[in-house]
């Protein structure tokens, strides 16, 4: 059973002893930050999984996230998949995304503290410092470039990763130069994985997807999950829906 699979993977990490061995378990039916548990105790996680109705996922918790101003964030991007040709999926990425920042400084401990570890807006908005550092705890891609620059400077200053002689300093990562291209690779990979379930599609079918990522302090992008009914931000929703309609709907009804 998959509980056994988790227990063995947990034990492997425990033996390595490299990190504090936190994992995140969630219901596949969950939304708005509900039915999620982070813990470094296998017993607690298994009890949580047993309490869930329906299916669940358990993943290694990313313990070394890149931080902004000491706080954890995840990256939300939006993707459109269309099937004007029922035998092929066309994949699009919206060129703006958001970082969802937590309200409380990050520590690689206190895993029960959702304000520190779970960046969902529905969780964070109950914290007294919500909206204090950035409006709605959101950061746009232009500011993300600034975050990446600061991160790079900090690493360089510390003589950490970039201080090693064998590592060339290629300058800071950028959203459009590094992050989005990697995100697009991951998106294509996930869709290729399930292509046999997706094809053929009814002609004209389309779907918006919301992808969540964490970027580690080493700059590696890690996929967290894919959302079928993604929320958007109030500033982006207007353009996003108009642009989606242009590609997914208007294209199916050309001007006479």
């Amino acid at each position: 059973d998959e509980r056994q699979g988790f227990a063995s993977a947990y034990d492997e990490y425990q033996k390595e002893g490299k990190c504090s061995n936190a994992w995140i378990a969630k219901s596949t039916l969950g939304f708005k930050g509900k039915d999620i548990k982070v813990s470094d105790s296998a017993t607690k996680l298994l009890a949580f999984i047993d309490s869930l109705k329906g299916r669940w996922v358990v993943q290694k918790y990313i313990e070394n996230p890149m931080l902004v101003d000491g706080r954890k964030f995840d990256i939300r991007t939006w993707h459109l998949v269309t099937a004007h040709d029922p035998q092929a999926l066309q994949v699009y990425t919206f060129d703006e995304g958001v970082l969802r920042v937590s309200s409380k400084p990050y520590k690689n401990s206190d895993f029960d503290d959702d304000f520190m570890h779970i960046t969902n807006n529905a969780i964070q908005q109950d914290h007294p410092d919500y909206g204090k550092n950035e409006q709605d705890n959101l950061i746009d891609f232009a500011q993300f470039d600034h975050v990446l620059k600061l991160h790079h400077q900090r690493k360089k200053g510390k003589g950490g990763e970039l201080g090693k002689e064998d590592e060339k300093d290629n300058g800071p990562m950028t959203v459009r130069g590094n992050v989005l291209p990697r995100i697009n690779e991951i998106v294509m990979e996930t869709l290729r994985c399930i292509k046999d379930f997706l094809l053929p599609q009814p002609c004209g079918a389309y779907q918006m997807l919301g992808y969540d990522f964490v970027i580690t302090d080493k700059g590696d992008l890690q996929l967290l999950e894919v959302n079928l009914t993604p929320g958007t931000s109030t500033t982006l929703v207007g353009k996003m829906v108009a642009d989606m309609n242009e590609i997914a709907v208007d294209a199916a009804f050309p001007d006479p």
């Binding site: 993707h79 459109l80 035998q87 092929a88 999926l89 066309q90 994949v91 699009y92 990425t93 919206f94 060129d95 703006e96 697009n184 998106v187 294509m188 869709l191 290729r192 292509k195 997706l198 094809l199 353009k239 996003m240 642009d243 989606m244 242009e246 590609i247």
Partner: peptide
Amino acid sequence: SLNNGFKHVGKIE
């Protein structure tokens, strides 16, 4: 259009 925020990134068939 060129202004469309959704940029084509790939095809799966």
